[in-house]
């Protein structure tokens, strides 16, 4: 899955496109974590606008980045999440830790 990283002062955005599953999670995680280490943002935005699928492996990814950003004193925002992943997001309780904004491609 291609990941595009955009940076602005204090903020880092990772744009994800495709299926977010166990297969794709590891390379995405490595890419995002390398960018966080380099830029040390206070806000990580995960742009899910191009996400076509997500299961609990995606929850692991968001949760892991939440912990990492917490250590850095920062926060995580998920933007443009497709409504099809709402059930999985709710079930995990991640929506209480990170801000999840819905309105992805399938809206």
């Amino acid at each position: 899955m291609p990941v595009t990283i955009n940076t602005a002062p204090g903020s880092l955005t990772a744009v994800l496109v495709g299926d977010l599953d166990h297969h794709s999670a590891k390379p995405i995680r490595e890419r995002i974590d390398a960018a966080i280490a380099e830029h040390r943002p206070t806000e990580l935005v995960l742009d899910f606008g191009g996400i076509t699928f997500m299961d609990s492996s995606g929850i692991g990814l968001v949760m892991g980045r939440y912990r990492l950003m917490e250590e850095l004193g920062g926060k995580v925002v998920v933007d443009n999440a497709p409504t099809t992943i709402k059930k999985v997001m709710r079930l995990s309780g991640i929506d209480k830790l990170a801000t999840i904004n819905y309105g992805g491609a399938d809206k």
Binding site: I59, G60, K87
Partner: peptide, 15 residues
């Protein structure tokens, strides 16, 4: 390890 959420069965059961 490797960031498993431990939610696979919970997801199956809820869906």
């Amino acid at each position: 390890d490797g960031e498993r959420a431990g939610l696979g069965f919970a997801v199956m059961q809820s869906l």
